[in-house]
Design a protein around this nucleic acid. Structure first.
Lengths: 194, 194
DNA sequence: TCGTCACGTTAACGCTCATTCACGTTAGCG
DNA sequence: CGCTAACGTGAATGAGCGTTAACGTGACGA
């Protein structure tokens, strides 16, 4: 009879510390022993919790993509009005980027280090998330077509995800309204740009 | 008497191919043999041109930072009016990001893989470049203080550097005006955001 | 109380990879 | 013409690291 783990923390702890380390040094810049040391166990103990180093990364990136997509779908279900939806999406994404800068960093830096299957999975989730934005932009009349909307969406992500670069010197509660306002106006610029 | 290299191309060729490979697979995801193969020589031949793999990366990143800083200083010298300077900076940076997406990618992904000395050098150059933007933003009255201006500058970089993510599906000459307009409006949003 | 399973540990294996070595080859300069 | 320096090559070296193996240990269910 499978024992239920009293401490579900170990897995989460590993994921969290690994994210911190991956963000700082990159996937290949961190060793299994390094991750182990960060959580107070040594090296190969990780294989009791994850099938491989790549598997650990996969779970992390899939988790992020699923979280973002779920959040996007939630907002889309709540708001019929595309302008209101965009506002909600901006708030949601900015909040995530400010709260989890390491995850943001790892997500768009170490995607290439995923095994093929997982990478396709993550790409698919990301694409679906982008499509929510694209759809909202087109319906809101901010972008004339999907291509422009996609460029705009990626640009907005780049803007909001700049957080890891300026965070460290800047408190989140001062950066948040700035990023939100900038993203909103950047997206509105799509209208006049074409 | 030192012979002048007939083919100055080899060095440039290596730098260029290495940039492409680093951008796609990351610094640690590319081997010396891989870089060699990409330019048609094999493995250790690179040591005739660079002191080490890290040295190669260092030259690449220092080159980028110097190019950006030089471009920024040029624009700053040409434009006394801060608003005009900002327009010139946006055009300059967007153009660079669209023309050299691989360099942009490598620059903000593999900085951590530099040896300490080179990393400090690059960071210093980057800081100086950022300060040109910060100064222009403050003088143009778009940001109330340097801290807000810094957040805004990093956000603008994130926006313009989003190019590698959307490029590939989008032609540069359609993306350029979109990114320019978005960046301009994003920066103007700093005024009302505070 | 006993077996089992979750969770660790240390040592060993094997592979990748940056770097060095010993050794050509070609082209210009004196 | 011959010396030298630029530029390559293929083989050897040595370190780092992911992964596996062999071996505890303590707690909980039967």
């Amino acid at each position: 009879m499978p024992r239920v783990p009293v401490t579900t923390s170990r897995r989460e702890q590993i994921l969290s510390e690994a994210a911190r380390l991956f963000a700082r040094h990159g996937f290949h810049g961190v060793s299994i022993d390094g991750i182990g040391a960060a959580v107070g166990v040594s090296g190969p103990a990780l294989y009791r919790h994850f099938p491989s180093k790549e598997g650990l990364l996969a779970e992390m990136l899939v988790g992020i993509s699923e979280h973002l997509l779920a959040g996007g779908q939630e907002r889309a279900a709540e708001h019929a009005d595309p302008a209101a939806l965009l506002e909600a999406l901006i708030a949601f994404h900015t909040d995530f980027a400010l709260r989890q800068p390491e995850l943001i960093t790892v997500q768009d830096r170490d995607l290439a280090n995923l095994p093929d299957v997982a990478r396709r999975r993550v790409r698919g989730l990301q694409r679906a998330y982008v499509e929510i934005w694209v759809d909202a932009l087109v319906r809101a009349g901010l972008a004339p077509g999907e291509e422009t909307a996609r460029v705009g969406a990626h640009a907005a992500f780049g803007l909001m995800n700049s957080t890891p670069r300026s965070a460290g010197h800047t408190r989140a509660d001062v950066a948040a309204p700035v990023l939100v306002a900038m993203t909103r106006d950047a997206l509105h610029a799509l209208r006049s740009a074409t």
